[in-house]
Structure formats: structure tokens, C-alpha cells
């Protein structure tokens, strides 16, 4: 017990960093995902390709390589200098963005064409149709898969400890070397991640019920 209470301050500090990076990269991922999904569905071919290349490149490579590419690779240019946290957020955000793009695209495509036809026949523009008719319905359908990806991204943040970000995993490392109680510390770190993910799925369930299709 003593080791755990000694470790707790470290772990809570790490937890803060993890939550911060997670939320920031989730927001970044959502913005990128929405843009890429719209590009992917655009009738303009080159825009299509851009989105497709991006999505395939992210999905076809390990996130660790993406992290090294962004943190070490891009930072090797003189005119780019990202701190660790920024590189971490950008990596997880770009990574999640590719998956979100596919989720959003599938969600949009699952909405009956008749909805768009009705909206356009009333004089709504294409973007008004997206905003008021298609996306609100698509979002409800996307929520479960969306939650899955958010959980994966949350777990992905633990990889960021490799470049020295002081997240929960990294702080677990620190606490272990301070206490030499690897079993207890890593067990507690696991429990904290588990609670975090559990809370996330509770939130998702709540949103799903609130937005239930009537």
C-alpha cells in the first residue's frame, strides 16, 4: 500500500497529461476526419485522391512509425520544431483522423438518398443539407464505432511515453524506479486506464441514448 500511495502523485500527474493529450488529439482527429470524409465523398477527383492517399497511408503504417516520422523525421527540418507533446497530439490526431474519416464517410453514406433529395427539393444548399439533415442523422449511427476508435486512440497515447512524454505510462515507469514495486504499480496503471475507458463508454452510452433515432 505504501508503494502505491508513494506512486500516486506521479500517476495522477501522468493521468492529467494523458487526458489532455487524448482530448486534444480527439478534437484534432475529428476535424481532420470530417474534412477527409467530405473530400472522400467529393465529386472532385483530385480531392478524392488526397483523402484516399492520406487514409491509406495512415491505415497502412504502424502508429509508432508515424510517431517517429513526425517527431524525429519532421523535426529534423530546421524550420519545424515541435515539442514532444505537440508531436504526440499531432500523431494520435492524424492517426485517429484517418479512421474517423472512414467512419464518418460510412455514416454519411448510410443515410437514405431520399433525405438529401427532400432537403434539396426544398431549396436547401448542399452544405445546409449536410449540416441539418445528413450529419445529425449520421452522427447517431456513427456513435458506437466512433467510441471504439476513441478508445483505441486513448490506448495509443500510451505509446507516446517512448519519446519521453510524461503521460500515465511514462509516470508508471518513473514510479516503478522510485519504488521498485513493478507489479503493484503497473497493476494500478492498468486499473486507471481501465477506469478511464469505462467512463468513456459510459459517456458514449449516455450520448447514444440521448440521440436515439426516433
Amino acid at each position: 500500500m505504501d508503494a502505491i500511495s508513494k506512486a500516486m502523485p506521479y500517476l495522477l500527474e501522468g493521468l492529467q497529461v494523458t487526458v489532455y493529450i487524448f482530448i486534444a488529439s480527439l478534437i484534432l482527429g475529428l476535424i481532420i476526419g470530417l474534412i477527409m470524409a467530405l473530400l472522400r465523398l467529393s465529386p472532385v477527383k483530385p480531392l478524392n485522391w488526397i483523402a484516399k492517399i492520406y487514409i491509406d497511408a495512415i491505415r497502412g503504417t504502424p502508429i509508432l512509425v508515424q510517431l517517429f516520422f513526425i517527431y524525429f523525421g519532421l523535426n529534423s527540418f530546421e524550420w519545424i520544431s515541435m515539442d514532444k507533446t505537440t508531436a504526440g497530439i499531432v500523431t494520435v490526431g492524424l492517426n485517429a483522423g484517418a479512421y474517423f474519416a472512414e467512419i464518418i464517410r460510412a455514416g454519411i453514406q448510410s443515410i437514405d438518398k431520399g433525405q438529401t433529395e427532400a432537403a434539396r427539393s426544398l431549396g436547401l444548399t448542399g452544405s445546409q443539407n449536410m449540416r441539418f439533415i445528413v450529419l445529425p442523422q449520421a452522427v447517431r449511427r456513427m456513435l458506437p464505432t466512433f467510441t471504439n476508435q476513441a478508445i483505441i486512440s486513448l490506448k495509443d497515447t500510451s505509446l507516446l511515453s517512448i519519446i519521453g512524454i510524461a503521460d500515465l505510462t511514462q509516470q508508471g515507469e518513473v514510479a516503478t524506479s522510485a519504488t521498485f514495486e513493478a507489479f503493484k504499480i503497473w497493476f494500478v496503471v492498468g486499473v486507471i486506464y481501465f477506469i478511464l475507458i469505462y467512463l468513456l463508454s459510459l459517456l458514449a452510452n449516455f450520448l447514444e441514448r440521448r440521440f436515439e433515432l426516433r
Partner: peptide
């Protein structure tokens, strides 16, 4: 325009 399948906005 009125459609065969109504196309009301369900949300």
C-alpha cells in the same frame, strides 16, 4: 416535391 417514400426528416 412530394415523394412516394415521404422522406420526412426522422430526427
Amino acid at each position: 416535391m412530394v415523394f412516394q417514400s415521404f422522406n420526412l426528416f426522422p430526427h
